[in-house]
Measured scan of single mutants.
Amino acid sequence: SSEEQMCGTHRETKKIFCEVDRSLLCLLCSSSQEHRYHRHRPIEWAA
Rank of each mutant, 00 (worst) to 15 (best):
S1V: 10
S1M: 04
S1G: 04
S1A: 05
S1R: 04
S2N: 04
S2A: 09
S2C: 09
S2Y: 03
S2L: 09
S2Q: 06
E3N: 07
E3C: 13
E3G: 10
E3F: 07
E3R: 09
E4N: 11
E4T: 13
E4S: 08
Q5P: 08
Q5Y: 13
Q5M: 13
Q5W: 05
M6K: 04
M6P: 02
M6A: 04
M6Y: 07
M6T: 06
M6W: 03
M6C: 04
M6S: 04
C7V: 02
C7R: 04
C7K: 00
C7S: 03
C7A: 00
C7H: 05
C7Q: 01
C7L: 02
G8N: 10
G8W: 09
G8A: 13
G8C: 12
G8Y: 11
G8I: 11
G8D: 12
G8P: 14
T9S: 10
T9V: 13
T9H: 10
T9M: 08
T9Q: 13
T9L: 14
H10E: 02
H10D: 07
H10V: 01
H10G: 02
H10R: 02
H10M: 00
H10I: 00
H10Q: 02
H10F: 00
H10Y: 01
R11N: 11
R11W: 06
R11D: 09
R11P: 05
R11I: 06
R11C: 12
R11E: 02
R11Q: 08
R11G: 11
E12Y: 11
E12L: 13
E12N: 01
E12A: 14
E12K: 15
E12D: 13
T13R: 10
T13K: 09
T13L: 09
T13G: 09
T13N: 05
T13I: 13
T13S: 11
T13Y: 08
T13F: 09
T13P: 15
K14S: 02
K14N: 06
K14M: 09
K14F: 01
K14R: 13
K14P: 05
K15M: 04
K15L: 07
K15D: 04
K15W: 02
K15E: 13
K15P: 01
K15I: 07
K15A: 07
K15C: 06
I16Q: 05
I16V: 10
I16D: 06
I16F: 07
I16K: 09
I16L: 06
F17Q: 03
F17L: 11
F17G: 03
F17R: 07
F17P: 07
F17W: 14
C18L: 00
C18K: 06
C18R: 02
C18S: 07
C18Y: 01
C18G: 01
C18W: 00
C18V: 00
E19R: 03
E19G: 03
E19M: 03
E19W: 03
E19H: 00
V20D: 14
V20C: 05
V20R: 12
V20S: 11
V20E: 14
V20M: 12
V20H: 12
D21Y: 11
D21I: 01
D21R: 10
D21V: 04
D21W: 09
D21L: 04
D21F: 04
D21N: 12
R22P: 12
R22M: 08
R22I: 03
R22L: 07
R22G: 14
R22C: 02
R22D: 11
R22N: 13
S23E: 14
S23F: 00
S23T: 15
S23H: 08
S23Y: 00
L24E: 11
L24R: 09
L24D: 07
L24A: 12
L24S: 07
L24N: 09
L24W: 11
L25K: 03
L25Y: 12
L25V: 14
L25R: 05
C26Q: 01
C26P: 00
C26R: 01
C26E: 01
C26D: 10
C26A: 01
L27M: 15
L27Y: 13
L27T: 14
L27C: 15
L27W: 12
L27N: 15
L28Y: 13
L28W: 06
L28I: 15
L28T: 15
L28M: 13
L28G: 10
L28A: 13
L28D: 10
C29L: 00
C29M: 00
C29Y: 00
C29H: 06
C29F: 00
C29P: 02
S30C: 05
S30W: 03
S30K: 02
S30E: 10
S30Q: 02
S30R: 02
S31D: 08
S31K: 08
S31C: 09
S31F: 07
S31V: 10
S31R: 12
S31Q: 10
S32C: 06
S32N: 10
S32V: 07
S32P: 05
Q33H: 09
Q33I: 15
Q33V: 13
Q33K: 11
Q33T: 10
E34D: 13
E34L: 03
E34I: 01
E34M: 05
E34P: 01
E34F: 02
E34K: 08
E34T: 07
H35W: 01
H35T: 00
H35L: 00
H35Y: 00
H35N: 02
H35V: 00
H35F: 02
R36L: 10
R36K: 10
R36P: 04
R36W: 03
R36E: 07
Y37M: 13
Y37N: 15
Y37I: 06
Y37T: 13
Y37L: 14
Y37S: 14
H38G: 01
H38W: 02
H38S: 02
H38M: 02
H38V: 01
H38P: 02
H38D: 04
H38F: 08
R39E: 15
R39D: 15
H40G: 05
H40Y: 01
H40T: 01
H40R: 04
R41K: 06
R41F: 08
R41N: 02
R41L: 07
P42L: 07
P42Y: 08
P42W: 02
P42K: 14
I43W: 06
I43C: 09
I43P: 04
I43E: 15
I43D: 15
E44Y: 03
E44H: 02
E44L: 04
E44P: 05
W45Y: 15
W45P: 15
W45I: 14
W45L: 14
W45K: 15
W45T: 15
W45N: 15
A46D: 14
A46P: 15
A46E: 11
A46T: 15
A46H: 08
A46M: 12
A46I: 01
A47M: 12
A47F: 02
A47S: 04
A47W: 10
A47E: 06
A47L: 05
A47H: 12
A47G: 11
A47R: 13
